[in-house]
């Protein structure tokens, strides 16, 4: 019996080391890095070996509204006709912060922080609020009953509720009345090897990548300069991190 367990452990270890070696080979040239980081076999389930994350450099002089515009365009947002502006769906908000004593002010984009321990998932009574294996937090609208507990639970105020009948949704982002929704890290684009829309529009101020891969750009930047999480005291370990806050 003991020998059998040893055997299994050995083969598992071999498997892990073997896969690391293979990844190392493909990662070596820079171009390959991009492809390895993004290409995924879409016939297989998303894997927890990957954890997608973003690093947002707020010290860069970037108009964050461009990211919001790109987001709105990608997901077909803004087609509410009757809702008040504060009711309309926002996947990204540009938050202005000001230190009253010094007068220093800055702005930063805040979207779903894709927590490792998402409170929205904890409170959801139907299992609609979910974290995919690769760390992307999503709303399964097939199960969402629109109770809005997740909106209450989210410390980042990242979720919105659709109050009215919608038409002309984007094919890639189905969304409708009675459901809660939030930034899905452009899961459709990520699965197809593209960058999220806001990352593309950010002129390099947002870096997207695999937090579990020490060779990825985002991991290297985090290792070198560090990153800050908003409300890190809550120990939710968000996948979205910031520099310059």
């Amino acid at each position: 019996m003991t020998s059998k367990i040893e055997k299994e452990d050995l083969s598992r270890r071999n498997f892990i080391f073997g896969s690391i070696a293979a990844a190392g080979l493909t990662v070596a040239p820079g171009v390959m890095l991009y492809q390895t980081a993004n290409a995924r076999d879409l016939s297989k389930a998303a894997s927890s070996k990957v954890r997608w994350g973003m690093l947002i450099d707020t010290s860069r002089d970037v108009d964050w509204n461009k990211c919001v515009e790109a987001c709105v365009k990608e997901h077909g947002l803004g087609n509410e006709e009757h809702s008040r502006p504060d009711q309309r769906t926002q996947y990204i908000r540009v938050v202005e912060v000001k230190n009253k004593s010094t007068g220093y002010s800055m702005s930063l984009p805040v979207m779903c922080q894709h927590c490792e321990q998402p409170p929205c998932v904890d409170v959801c009574p139907t299992g609609a609020s979910m974290k995919r294996e690769d760390g992307i937090v999503l709303v399964d609208r097939h199960r969402c009953i629109g109770c809005r507990y997740c909106m209450m639970a989210c410390p980042y105020k990242a979720r919105s509720f659709v109050h009215e009948t919608l038409t002309d949704q984007s094919t890639t982002t189905p969304r409708g009345k009675g459901c809660v929704e939030s930034c899905n890290m452009c899961v459709n684009r990520v699965d197809n090897g593209q960058l999220p829309a806001c990352v593309e529009a950010s002129e390099g101020a947002i870096v997207f990548g695999n937090l579990n891969d020490p060779e990825s750009d985002i991991s290297k930047l985090l290792a070198k300069h560090g990153g800050k999480q908003i409300r890190a005291d809550l120990k939710l370990n968000p996948g979205v991190q910031y520099q310059g806050i």
Partner: peptide, 21 residues
């Protein structure tokens, strides 16, 4: 059945005409 409360009911990129809007 309410598939099309969320899902797009015509192919992507096609006419935006809709009776409601």
């Amino acid at each position: 059945i309410d598939c099309f409360q969320c899902h797009r009911d015509i192919p992507e990129g096609s006419s935006n005409f809709h009776a409601l809007s």
